[in-house]
Design a protein around this nucleic acid. Structure first.
Lengths: 136, 136
DNA sequence: CTATTACCCTATCGGTTTAGTAGGTTAGTT
DNA sequence: AACTAACCTACTAAACCGATAGGGTAATAG
C-alpha cells in the first residue's frame, strides 16, 4: 500500500506542474488545495527539494517551485525517493537488494520469482511515465 | 512491501505443490523447512484452509494438503486472501474500492491514474500465474 | 535596517499494524 | 483410551505511520 507521504508528494508535484507560471507557491497553499497537513507536507517538500526536484525561495513571496520540466521528471525516481524500493520484497529489488534470512536458496524461491516479474513490470510503467504524462 | 504472512503463505503452498505425493504434511515440518515460526504459520495455513486452498487431517499422520491442482490455483486469489488489495491505493482498487477523503476529484487525480496503471499490470501478472507456474 | 515572511530542523506522540508467543481445546487415529 | 495434531483465543513487543509542536534561520520588502 502506498504511503500518504508518496501520495501527497506526487499530488504536490502535480499541483505545481499544473500551474501556468512557475512562481513560488507557499506550502500552506498546496496543503489547503490538496487537503494535506501543513507540517507533514512541509517535510515532504523538503525531501523533494533535497532530491533535486524542487527549488525553494525564502522570505516574503517565497515558496516552492519545480526545478525541472514536468516531462523531465521520471516517476520511478520520484517513487524511489518518496516510497523506497519498487519491489515488494527486498530480495527482488535492484536498488535496495537484501537477501531473505529465511530463504534456503533464493534462485528457486517461487515468491521471489513472482515478485520479480511484478517488479519488472511496475518499474517499466514508472520509468515510462513522467510528471507531464500523469498531470495533463 | 509484501507482508511476511503473504510470503510465508505462498512458500507453504509452494512447498506442498513440490511434493510428489499429496499426503498430509504437519505444520512443524513446513515451518522447519521454510524457517517459519510454527504458530505464525499455523494461523496462515488455517486461513488458507478456510479459503478453500488447503485441506486438513487431524490426529496421528495428520497435517495439511493441497485441495486443488497447483495449475488451478490462481495467484491473484491467493494474493488477495493473504495480502488484501492488489492496488496500491484504495481508490484504485476493484475489490476493495474506497474513495480518498482528501481528494477533490478522483477523475483527474494523477496519483490514482498512475496507480491504476500499475494495478492493471500487476493484476494481469497475478491472474496469469498459477501455483504450478511459479513452483516448477 | 528591521520586521516579516516562510522555509528549515528536531523532537515527540498516539494509533495502528505486524510478527510472534502462550496456553488451552477439540477432534480424529491408532 | 491414549495420543496426536489441528484448531481457537488472547496477549505482547516492536516497528511504523501520520501528524503535531515549537522554535531557528535566512531572505526579502519596505
Amino acid at each position: 500500500m502506498l504511503s500518504k507521504k508518496t501520495k501527497y508528494g506526487i499530488k504536490a508535484l502535480t499541483f505545481l506542474a499544473r500551474r501556468e507560471d512557475q512562481t513560488p507557491v507557499q506550502i500552506s497553499e498546496i496543503a489547503k488545495a490538496e487537503h494535506i497537513s501543513i507540517k507533514f507536507l512541509e517535510s515532504i517538500l523538503l525531501l523533494l527539494r533535497h532530491s533535486g526536484f524542487l527549488g525553494a525561495k525564502k522570505g516574503k513571496g517565497g515558496g516552492y517551485y519545480l526545478i525541472k520540466e514536468p516531462k523531465d521528471i521520471n516517476m520511478a525516481k520520484v517513487y524511489r525517493i518518496l516510497e523506497g524500493p519498487i519491489a515488494l520484497l527486498p530480495c527482488a529489488s535492484h536498488n535496495f537488494y537484501e537477501p531473505c534470512d529465511d530463504c534456503n536458496d533464493e534462485t528457486i524461491c517461487a515468491v521471489r520469482r513472482l515478485m520479480m516479474e511484478v517488479r519488472d513490470n511496475t518499474l517499466m510503467i514508472l520509468e515510462n511515465n513522467t510528471l507531464a504524462d500523469i498531470a495533463f
